[in-house]
């Protein structure tokens, strides 16, 4: 599928999705509540068949957080980026562990570094950070740690 065909397919699946094509890959912006049903369709529709989640990350924009999912199809060779805005004070989104198994690991990392709560995640706990780090999110812009952080 080329980008035009994917755009039509997305518009069909989720009319509220905002499509953006300024970057390398076709990007869509969605509401966080729409993510899980859309993800299932992206994975299970034969023409789309996004079977590989190759990047899962989060961005802190100070005013809000953005979850970023990079999906690709190893069969059709097309790529899609899904972005979803989250509330900074109550960041939560459904997990996609059941669809792409790799998400379990990456969501744990986003959980410990950005404090995004992945609903229905099977094993949501710290990945690399030592015990006792819950509640402090080191990759958020306003993170301050008087012991380790030296500011100019």
């Amino acid at each position: 599928m080329n980008n035009e065909q994917i755009k039509i397919a997305i518009a069909d699946l989720l009319p509220s999705a905002i499509i953006e094509e300024s970057s390398e890959w076709l990007t869509i912006h969605i509401e966080s509540v729409d993510w899980l049903p859309l993800a299932e369709k992206l994975r299970n529709t034969a023409e789309l068949y996004f079977d590989y989640l190759f990047c899962l990350t989060c961005v802190d924009w100070k005013s809000h957080l953005t979850m970023v999912y990079h999906l690709t199809s190893t069969f059709h060779r097309h790529t899609l980026v899904v972005k979803s805005k989250l509330d900074r004070d109550d960041a939560r989104i459904e997990t996609v562990t059941m669809i792409w198994r790799t998400a379990e690991f990456h969501e744990r990392e986003v959980y410990e570094l950005f404090g995004v709560n992945f609903l229905h995640h099977p094993d949501l706990r710290l990945l690399i950070l030592p015990d006792g780090w819950e509640g402090k999110y080191p990759l958020r812009k306003d993170f301050e740690d008087p012991v380790n952080i030296i500011k100019l």
Binding site: P138, F143, D145, N148, L152
Partner: peptide, 10 residues
């Protein structure tokens, strides 16, 4: 990593 790090020993 001297400035603004949460993890690196100086």
């Amino acid at each position: 990593f001297f400035y603004n790090t949460y993890s690196v020993v100086k």
